[in-house]
Amino acid sequence: MDTKKHNKNKSKFSDVLTPVIFIGAALVIWQCVSMSGIVPNYMLPSPVQMVQALIADFPLLMQHSRATLIEAGLGLVIGVALGFTAAAVMDMFPVARRGLYPILVITQTIPPVAIAPLLILWFSYGIAPKVVLVVLVSFFPLAVGLLEGFQSVDDDMVRLMRSMKATRWQIFWHVKVPAALGQFFSGLKIAVSYSIIGAVIAEWLGGFEGLGVYMTRVKKAYSYDKMFAVILLVSVLSLLLMGIVRLLQRKCMPWAYIDKDK
């Protein structure tokens, strides 16, 4: 028993250690390449320069991050609400499923970069086009995940609930929604990273604030170290949000994390 526990801890440790070593190695190689001068420094700054740029512009970057996060957050909330509604409607009405699902899939083949300029024409340079783009990119993974979750419910479970005289709404609430939570959170993890990317893309094409705006400015100034710093920041923010989603999932789905040996 003790050794088993020990092994488990050991494997967990190596789960963390392995990627850390690989990422560390990649950074060291990058640093060496930069310092050796094989690639001109202005084109590929070293990781150390990147971090220095990040620190130097930190207050400004935080201000832009705030704007981007607000856009992404607002878009996500609306995206979740719309995705949930669409999935519920498609689950309850087969006609809606047959009609809407192909449309949803087709909209996903349109690259966000292609519609962003249109959104700016329609909604001007404020926060609106950014939020709309985030809604568009986050809606799909959420709606599809939820719908699949709703549909995964065993027909016999529905029969049993009906024999207990459960209403449609009760079946939805007690059986379908909890059954879809796992899929919902998988969708949400994807949606969260899409949302930051979506907001940044919309900011590129025009705006007053946000990491995308900062990116276009430093690019025009040829400050590639700052460019890389903001790229780093964007991925850190995405990871952070995904971590929050993971925590939320643990909180909302305690039954999925129980130790079955106990």
Partner: peptide, 18 residues
């Protein structure tokens, strides 16, 4: 009419989240 008889199946049909 449903709801007059209690029904139990081969599968236990307990909800995993409750």
């Amino acid at each position: 009419e449903t709801g007059h008889l209690s029904y139990m199946l081969q599968k236990d049909m307990l909800l995993p989240h409750k």
